[in-house]
Nucleic acid binder design. Sequence first.
DNA 1: ACCGTCATGTAATCGGTTACATGATTCT
DNA 2: AGAATCATGTAACCGATTACATGACGGT
Lengths: 171, 171
Amino acid sequence: MQEVRLTPTSYIVLGLLEFAGESTPYGLKQLVSASVGNFWTLHHAQLYTEPERLAKGGYVSEKRERGGRRRRLYEITERGRAALDDWRREPTAASLGELREPALLKLFFGADPAAIAAAQLPAHRAKLAEYEAIREGMPDNVPRGPRLALEAGIRNERHFIEFWEELAEDG
Amino acid sequence: MQEVRLTPTSYIVLGLLEFAGESTPYGLKQLVSASVGNFWTLHHAQLYTEPERLAKGGYVSEKRERGGRRRRLYEITERGRAALDDWRREPTAASLGELREPALLKLFFGADPAAIAAAQLPAHRAKLAEYEAIREGMPDNVPRGPRLALEAGIRNERHFIEFWEELAEDG
DNA sequence: ACCGTCATGTAATCGGTTACATGATTCT
DNA sequence: AGAATCATGTAACCGATTACATGACGGT
């Protein structure tokens, strides 16, 4: 069992394994794109390498199917649950995320605001529509966390739309 | 002259070199932390490696001081300016950035909203105050791009503050 | 003189991204 | 039956982060 640093990617995998129980990398991929992938994308290859990393640290256990495709099955361990709990509890990471919006970078370095806005608006509007559709179709048993995250995403889109709208016309 | 892929980091370096003229890595570091670093952080080591990479692609030129510390001096080339212009012009990158807010991730995976909010609020308020101070002290000759980016940053902080405030008390 | 911090840089590591591959299904 | 897409995985590369260093300079 080796020392393994836990990154946001790690917690996503742990969180999903906690939620869904034993899963294959491909199953995780499905879960991601249906949930947290909306605001934090992972490449599918990471869902093969990250569980393997976590297994090295004892945060998840690995099994392989005997017959057929011999797919790998991962399950969160006690150690994994503990790490996840610690992470959830510790809000000390008062460090903020960064905007890191490519369009803002262009704006910063002198791109034409109206042109950028014209390209950004449809994309943000589409994203907003997507979020709202998810919200409408959301079953009652979905827990509060995802609901709140979705709400944050919706507001974020609204604000960006507002921002770019102001720049779309102006001179 | 080799093939070099241009990343957001590349454009930051190019943009700053265009703005400031010939600079050393350390000079770039200063520039970053005084400007774009507010919403897009770079590690100082990148300001040594990235210009070198760009030099390989012919986007910047490299000189070394003859005496003393023999520091490296970088300057944007015609090719560099052209690449920067293309990037600014092409708004095709309709792909949106991602929220990627660690606090939202915790929320998503079940952290206590009030606890997270309590930690996030002071941080966001401090950041907002910092932005507003920058805005107050901003000389008149600062171009529109940075102004708009700052404006976006300020609004973003306000919205997050609002969001976390709602969660700070609730049950 | 000493200490701390700013200035300046190199090297190693590692996570993330891209590219490459190939069975299995489903559709026409 | 063939084409297209989904499912499933491996491998290489590369940019980003971390760690390691050392000289200059201002203050006590």
